[in-house]
C-alpha cells in the first residue's frame, strides 16, 4: 500500500431519501477506508423513524490519528441525494467544503459551487439496476477524494457483497469513477490534497 495521505478529521455526510442505500454507501466506504486504507474511521447514522421514512443520513469521520469525538460536526463533504437533505444539511458544510449532488433530484442547489451527476438515471440506464445508484456515488467519490485508492475501494466493495450482485456493482462503481473524472475533471479534489500536504 502506498503512503497514506495524512488526514485530520475529514468529515463526510451522506444524506437523502430512505431506500436510496445511503447507510450501505457510508458503511461500505467506511469499511474500505478503515480496513483497506488503514485510516481511523467512525461511522454513525440516523436511527428509528428518521431512518424508516423520509430522510436518511450517514456520517463518516476519517482521520490518520485516533478519533475521539465520533460524530460529524463540520462537514468537509456533503453528499445530498435529495432536495430536502440538501436543504437540511448544507448549513453544516464548512467554508470551502464540497457539495456533491444528485443533479436530477436536487433542482435548486443552495450554491453554484457544487459537483453534480444524475446518479439515479445513470444507474438505471447505464447499469440497468436503479438500486446500484449508491455504488455509482461510491465510484464517483473514489475519484473525487484524493486519499481513496480506486482499486483498494473496489476490492473492499467486492468483498462486502454477495456474489450474485457483485458484477453489477463493480460495473456501477467503474461507471461512477469514469464519469466523475470526465465531468468533474482530474483535479476536482485537489483542494484537499494541497491543504493536507501544507498542514504536514
Amino acid at each position: 500500500m502506498k503512503q497514506q495521505q495524512q488526514l485530520h478529521r475529514f468529515e463526510i455526510r451522506f444524506s437523502g431519501l430512505g431506500g436510496q442505500g445511503i447507510i450501505t454507501l457510508g458503511r461500505v466506504m467506511g469499511q474500505g477506508l478503515a480496513l483497506g486504507h488503514g485510516y481511523n474511521v467512525t461511522q454513525t447514522q440516523s436511527y428509528g423513524p428518521e431512518a424508516r421514512g423520509g430522510s436518511s443520513r450517514c456520517d463518516l469521520v476519517i482521520s490518520s490519528e485516533p478519533i475521539s469525538y465520533p460524530k460529524a460536526e463540520s462537514l468537509d463533504l456533503l453528499v445530498a441525494l435529495s432536495q430536502e437533505a440538501c436543504n437540511a444539511y448544507y448549513p453544516y458544510l464548512k467554508p470551502g467544503g464540497a457539495l456533491v449532488l444528485e443533479s436530477d433530484l436536487v433542482k435548486q442547489p443552495p450554491t453554484n459551487r457544487f459537483l453534480g451527476l444524475p446518479f439515479t438515471s445513470l444507474a438505471r440506464d447505464k447499469v440497468g439496476v436503479a438500486q446500484a445508484m449508491n455504488t455509482v456515488v461510491l465510484g464517483a467519490l473514489s475519484h473525487l477524494l484524493p486519499f481513496i485508492s480506486q482499486s483498494v475501494m473496489r476490492k473492499s466493495l467486492e468483498s462486502s457483497l454477495p456474489a450474485k450482485i457483485r458484477a453489477v456493482n463493480v460495473k456501477a462503481f467503474n461507471l461512477g469513477h469514469r464519469l466523475a473524472k470526465k465531468e468533474w475533471g482530474d483535479d476536482a479534489g485537489e483542494v484537499w490534497r494541497v491543504e493536507d500536504s501544507e498542514r504536514d
Binding site: R27, A34, N40, V41, T42, Q43, T44, Q45, I67, P70
Partner: peptide, 10 residues
C-alpha cells in the same frame, strides 16, 4: 449508550 452502540469503527 446509543452513540457507542451505533458507531462503526475498525
Amino acid at each position: 449508550d446509543e452513540v457507542t452502540a451505533h458507531t462503526r469503527e475498525k
